[in-house]
Design a protein around this nucleic acid. Sequence first.
DNA 1: ATTTGCTAATTGCATATGCAATTGTCTAGC
DNA 2: GCTAGACAATTGCATATGCAATTAGCAAAT
Lengths: 249, 249
Amino acid sequence: MSDNGIEAVKLDGTGPVYDQIRRAIRDLVLNGAWPPGTAVPPEHALMERLGASRMTVHRALVQLAREGLITRRRRSGTIVANPPASHAMLDILSIPDEVRQLGQDYSFEILSRRDGRPSPEVAASFELKRSEQVAHLVTLHRSGGQPHVLEERVIHLATVPATAAERFETTPPGDWLLQHSLWSQAEHAISAVAAGERESGLLEIEQGEPCLLVERRTWNQNQPVTAVRLLYPGGRHRFIGRFGPYGAV
Amino acid sequence: MSDNGIEAVKLDGTGPVYDQIRRAIRDLVLNGAWPPGTAVPPEHALMERLGASRMTVHRALVQLAREGLITRRRRSGTIVANPPASHAMLDILSIPDEVRQLGQDYSFEILSRRDGRPSPEVAASFELKRSEQVAHLVTLHRSGGQPHVLEERVIHLATVPATAAERFETTPPGDWLLQHSLWSQAEHAISAVAAGERESGLLEIEQGEPCLLVERRTWNQNQPVTAVRLLYPGGRHRFIGRFGPYGAV
DNA sequence: ATTTGCTAATTGCATATGCAATTGTCTAGC
DNA sequence: GCTAGACAATTGCATATGCAATTAGCAAAT
């Protein structure tokens, strides 16, 4: 190829041209063909390649920049941006970062791990098919030595095959996944539950104490990536978000 | 005025012209000068009024439309949109709607109301100054006759003076506020707490049961509008949101 | 070696222009 | 009165063009 994979940019002929260009490039970024840091071809190159005017190409790129997928600078050109770490309240957040932001020491411990077909209980609780191969991990995160949050997670081995070889000795599963997989959609649910027998022991709280339960499932291009259940001791934690009526501020 | 308040559109001379236009119109919408339903002048009129080309005006309007502030239709023109009712998980949501969406009958009851300077307890719990005049309301919302959520709210009388004359006989305070005030920013906090003595009685649950506590404060142009604390019986409720790494889906 | 300045690549912005698509509104005919 | 059709207003999209702003990279000067 002459420069980058400019040949990979293909229009589908449906809808406005500027939007075809926008979607074509967006897809290349989202499916990993153009990883962060990749140079996006300059407007003139795309213009010739696609037979569109510069203004039309420009419009597509400006929009992608506003969406945060690419970064543009005069003369330097356009590069694929790093995915944003945090978006409003409930993003895929890094628990180590969260803890360190509070000025506490962070540590974690994998309490159990099992790879393969899920047990009936796990399958039911995460809405999996029993035929899907997953890694099932239970992790306790600590903040200043105290239990901070209890994490139970399944990772889909078909989507993230590198999981099988990873021991999670230095990086907890959530952070490792952020580096080794992409996600395009997530679903969150928040509820309040009472700590059960096992959870209360691990989190060192009283049985029946209120806890905040955050359940999150993540997909990339409709392929499931991971599902996680985070149990926070209630009194000690809150999630905060700030936004305006027309979107995040 | 000839048509609408087209004279109200004023550029501030800072930054790109299209963005000056965008901000000028956005501000008119956000501060209520152009309430929902108002006809935005057509592109040609703005173009003449502002001395910009049609494409430049167009660019500003297209962007506002994408942000959801205005709605555009060929031939009919452009009108100011209704503020979105729900944005991802934690929007300003209408509790009646929420209940009816579950197919239940909705009713509510104002348990107490007091207007004037806040008591020391209320001031502390909502972080108010004791000199601020507020209405303080406690409301119980019911779903199919059962307690659904307990609401405690203060409304700033200086920002929403119409509150003083409103009896909240047919519309609960949250919904009434949506119709009689604007907001430009909100802050949410979610946490899990155990039901106290008073709350458990009102919500008809056991004392100590886990509840989801949603605290929200709302401002319009840096003026406080309202602060509310919603207590949901834990087992029965969860908040759900769905989005991608680059924003809401 | 360091600085200084030039050049060219690249994006940002605005304009003028033309045509397409949608749809209120009005009119002519029945 | 009602309908079909013509007309015009309005937005949507794309192009061509020109200039401004930024800056990487190179060349010249010290």
